[in-house]
Amino acid sequence: MTFQPFVPFAGYSGWTFLSRTLPEQTAAFAASPALDRDMTYFRENIGAVKSADDLVGDFRLLRVALGAFGLQDDMPNKAFIRTVLAEGVSEGDALANRLADKRYRAFSEAFGFGTSLPPKSGTPGFADRILARFERQEFERAIGTQNEDMRLALTATRELPEIAERDLTNDAAWFTIMGNPPLRKIFETAFGLPSGVGGIDLDRQLKTFEERSEQVLGRSDVAQFREPEQVEELIQAYLTRSQLNSFASVNSPASIALTLLQGAV
Rank of each mutant, 00 (worst) to 15 (best):
E44T: 15
N45I: 13
N45E: 15
I46F: 03
I46V: 09
I46S: 02
I46N: 02
G47D: 03
G47K: 01
G47V: 03
A48I: 08
A48G: 15
A48F: 10
A48D: 10
V49A: 10
V49Y: 05
K50T: 00
A52S: 07
A52R: 03
D53I: 11
D53W: 09
D53F: 03
D53Q: 13
D54Y: 03
L55M: 02
L55Q: 07
V56R: 06
G57M: 05
G57H: 11
D58Q: 01
D58H: 08
F59L: 14
L61A: 10
L61G: 04
L61F: 04
L61Y: 05
L62E: 05
L62F: 07
R63K: 12
L66M: 14
L66D: 13
G67I: 06
G67K: 00
A68T: 00
F69N: 05
F69H: 09
F69D: 00
G70N: 05
L71I: 12
Q72C: 11
Q72T: 15
D73C: 14
D74N: 15
M75K: 10
N77S: 10
K78N: 12
K78R: 13
K78I: 09
F80Y: 09
I81N: 02
I81G: 03
R82H: 09
V84N: 05
V84L: 08
L85Q: 11
A86W: 08
E87C: 12
V89A: 05
S90R: 10
S90T: 15
E91A: 13
G92I: 11
D93L: 14
D93T: 11
D93I: 11
D93Y: 15
D93W: 13
A94K: 01
A94L: 01
L95I: 06
L95H: 02
L95Q: 06
L95R: 08
A96W: 02
N97D: 06
R98V: 01
R98K: 07
L99D: 07
L99C: 12
D101R: 04
D101Y: 05
K102V: 11
R105V: 09
R105W: 14
F107C: 12
F107I: 09
F107A: 08
S108A: 14
S108T: 11
E109T: 06
A110Y: 08
F111A: 06
F111S: 02
G112M: 04
G112S: 08
G112D: 04
F113A: 07
F113M: 06
F113H: 05
G114D: 06
G114C: 00
G114W: 04
T115S: 12
T115W: 14
S116K: 15
S116Y: 14
S116L: 15
L117G: 12
L117F: 11
P118C: 02
P119S: 10
P119E: 10
P119I: 10
S121Q: 07
S121W: 10
S121T: 15
S121M: 07
T123F: 11
T123P: 02
T123Y: 14
P124G: 08
P124T: 08
P124H: 06
G125F: 07
G125A: 00
G125E: 07
A127I: 00
D128I: 01
D128E: 07
R129W: 11
I130C: 09
I130W: 01
I130G: 03
I130S: 05
L131M: 11
L131G: 02
L131Q: 01
A132N: 02
A132F: 01
